[in-house]
Amino acid sequence: MEHHIVLRVVAKLLIPVILLFALYVQFHGDYGPGGGFQAGVIFGAGLILYALIFGLQTIKKVVTPSFVHYMSGVGLLLYAGVGVISLFKGGNYLDYSFLSADPVHGQHLGILLIELGVGITVAFVMVSLFYAFAGYRQADLKVPPDTGHEATEKARDAVLEREPQ
C-alpha cells in the first residue's frame, strides 16, 4: 500500500483511537455492552489494521511473533490462575468472592482480572491468526507439493524455513 498516502495518514490517526476504544470496551464491559472478548477483537483489529497498511514486517518488529504467542498463553494462564488463587484462598475454583474480604468487591476484582485475561488472549490470538495467514505465502515460494514422501518433504522444509527478508 505504498502509494496510499491517504490511507496511511488516516490510519495513523485512527489506530490510537481504536486501541483506546478497545481499552474502553474492556473496562466498560461491566456497565455497558462489551467486555474482554470484544475488546480483544478490537485491539487485535487495530494491530491488524496497522499490519495491513504498514506491512507485516513493520509490525513484527514492534509486536514480535514470539511475544504474541507468549501473550496468548499468558492471558489464559491469568484467567485460570485467578481460579487457582481463589482455590488457595479457601473458596471453590473461580469463586471470586474469596479474592477480597468483601465478597462483592471480590467479585468485581475477579471479573476485572478474568476479563483482562480474556482480552489478552483474544487480542493476541487474533494477531497470531493474522500473522499465520498473512505470512503463509507458499504461492511465490515454489513449495513442492506436500506428498508425504521423505525426499520432497525435505525440499519442502528447506523452502518453508526460508524467512523472507
Binding site: 500500500m1 499490519a51 506491512g55 514486517q57 511465490d140
Partner: peptide
Amino acid sequence: GKRSSFSETP
C-alpha cells in the same frame, strides 16, 4: 502479485 507487498516498508 508482489511477493513482498505485505512487508514493504513505508
